[in-house]
């Protein structure tokens, strides 16, 4: 029982990170129908920039803020320089572009920073908290809290603010959105900036636990995508639930089946979801029209 609780805690912590990556996917997918394979690099950048800014002497909160802002700027640049110019291109081209961006960012990070693993001090100390016979690190609570806060913030943004509704309108029908006076270019900028910022935040929060290096992005992007798909593409609620569930599956697989195949869980989930219920847990099935 204690073991189970321990697995649940670690699963929810990792799941919260996946949920943040999935939320980032969701925002961009909602605004542009683009699946951004460079999403994981935002997480990596959030961690790496914070680490190096902190090493350079900046206080941690300031370093984190700087990392989030810099990554958001990069997200905006990615949209302007690589995604917008290829508007209307076939899906395979867009996939190549975002994967190319991911390789480019990774290569640059390896040059600018280094190839080492880096950590950050935990925000509220390293003393484990005892809960129900298991322990949880204070930093895990930061990660879980961060995911929940971002989710609530996004939910409010998309349902309560005019700007959020403009993003959704743009995703529904770009031309119609332009016709009713929505500046769709600005919506895209916002979506990429926000998505990159959320990714960077995830990187900042999780680096004290899992460490960061230039090449952590690909794995995270794939897990985040699996989570988004499990929850239903384009649905923030789905991204949150999908992320946590995926984290739990992984932790329980590692605990009870085989730690070797822990990494396989995400992909088995992807394949299973796609075959059994392609719309995911919270997605809606669409009708193809002729």
């Amino acid at each position: 029982m204690d073991a189970l609780m321990q697995f649940v805690f670690s699963g929810v912590t990792v799941g919260a990170v996946y949920a943040l990556v999935a939320l980032g996917f969701t925002i961009i997918y909602n605004a542009s129908d683009v699946v951004n394979f460079a999403q994981g690099e935002f997480v990596m950048l959030g961690g790496m920039i914070t680490v190096f800014a902190h090493l350079a002497g900046l206080p941690l909160p300031l370093a984190a803020l700087g990392a989030i802002l810099a990554t958001a700027a990069l997200g905006v640049a990615l949209n302007r320089l690589a995604i917008e110019p290829a508007r209307g291109a076939p899906v395979v081209s867009v996939i190549i572009i975002t994967i190319g961006a991911s390789i480019l960012i990774r290569g640059a990070a390896q040059l600018i920073f280094d190839k080492q693993l880096h950590g950050l001090p935990a925000f509220s100390g390293d003393d484990p908290i005892r809960v129900m016979g298991a322990t949880i690190l204070p930093q895990s609570l930061w990660v879980i809290g961060g995911a929940l806060a971002v989710f609530v913030g996004l939910w409010a943004f998309f349902t309560r603010t005019l700007t959020g509704k403009a993003v959704l309108a743009t995703s529904n029908n770009r031309t119609a959105a332009q016709l009713v006076g929505i500046n769709t270019g600005w919506v895209m900028t916002l979506a990429f900036g926000l998505s990159a910022a959320i990714g960077a935040l995830a990187g900042v929060l999780v680096t004290p636990i899992t460490l960061v290096s230039y090449d952590v992005g690909v794995g995270l992007a794939l897990k985040g995508f699996a989570a988004a798909m499990l929850g239903g593409m384009g649905n923030p609620k789905g991204a949150l639930a999908g992320g946590i569930l995926l984290g739990l599956f992984e932790a329980l697989t590692a605990g009870y089946v085989s730690s070797h195949y822990k990494e396989a869980v995400a992909f088995i989930v992807i394949l299973g979801v796609l075959f059994a219920m392609p719309q995911g847990l919270f997605g809606r099935a669409g009708t193809e029209r002729v």
Binding site: A89, S93, I97, I99, A108, L111
Partner: peptide, 20 residues
């Protein structure tokens, strides 16, 4: 060698944009 990945990524993006 250090620039290999960056060049690869840049080539992928540029070709898709300019020579789709």
């Amino acid at each position: 060698a250090d620039y290999e990945q960056m060049v690869l990524g840049a080539v992928m993006i540029l070709v898709m944009i300019f020579l789709p």
